[in-house]
Design a binder for these strands. Structure first.
Lengths: 132, 132
DNA sequence: ATGCATAAGATGCGCAAGCAAATAATGCAG
DNA sequence: CTGCATTATTTGCTTGCGCATCTTATGCAT
């Protein structure tokens, strides 16, 4: 019994890997070619766009995009260098930082979003089931 | 309508990313710590174990593990260096290579498999639905 | 036979990821 | 106030990935 369950889990994991890798790969390529963004960078912009006042603390953002803190730190550095977001220090706790979308960031997100949605429609129709 | 569908797809994609990253991260850590294998290396050993005569062509293997051809080439180099697999040239088409499990590779897979299954059970119970 | 398009793998390159250690700011115990 | 554990973020290091390109092998057309 346990063996059968385990093998079913392994098979499901294998399918999950396949769906993820395929979509991620295409998203990275298309978003990169058309808008100069990686899929992770797009996710960050999206999280910020949806957040109150378009700003979030680093650690919250790291959770939201499923990235390690160090990876997020560097990703934010890149987006800041490109002028799409800003680090804003937090007066209440000087250890924390808020990350906020700039106007350029909002624009870039608005431009890139249709591309992302299109890829999800084209490549994800057979990969992404309806939400449970 | 299209907008709602697109947003649902985006939300589903976000969940897929989360499930994948979480599982992949834990698998890499545990398999690495306990058996010196990455999750991708484990997948390669598993594909070979399940294959006829425990050998597959590189390109077939690359598909099976959802990896680029170059990534697989290097992965195979590492596994070969560790003595877990062998490259065997194909007499019918000298461009092709077969990759085969060694005895050490079979043993390593047998050792690592319970770890992988345990992680899938512990971390994946809420991530991996039953197969459709 | 010769040439050329194609296929399978390997390799140079740059990039982004995770872990672990470093830095900096808090806050609490004495 | 001083020291120490804790929290938030950054940075050094190593590793693995994908893309583009190179090399070798096929095989078909002439």
């Amino acid at each position: 019994m346990s063996a059968r369950t385990d093998d079913a889990l392994a098979a499901e994991w294998h399918r999950l890997m396949g769906r993820y890798q395929r979509l991620m790969c295409v998203l990275d390529r298309e978003l990169g070619a058309e808008h100069g963004l990686s899929a992770s960078e797009f996710e960050v912009l999206q999280q910020l766009e949806q957040a109150e006042e378009c700003s979030l603390r680093m650690s919250v953002l790291a959770d939201g995009v499923h990235l390690s803190q160090s990876a997020l730190s560097r990703l934010v550095t890149r987006l800041e260098r490109d002028g799409l977001i800003e680090r804003k220090s937090c007066s209440q706790d000087r250890r924390s930082l808020f990350v906020a979308l700039t106007d350029a960031g909002r624009t870039r997100y608005a431009d890139a979003r249709p591309t992302q949605r299109r890829v999800l429609r084209e490549e994800g129709s057979d990969c992404l089931e309806q939400p449970a």
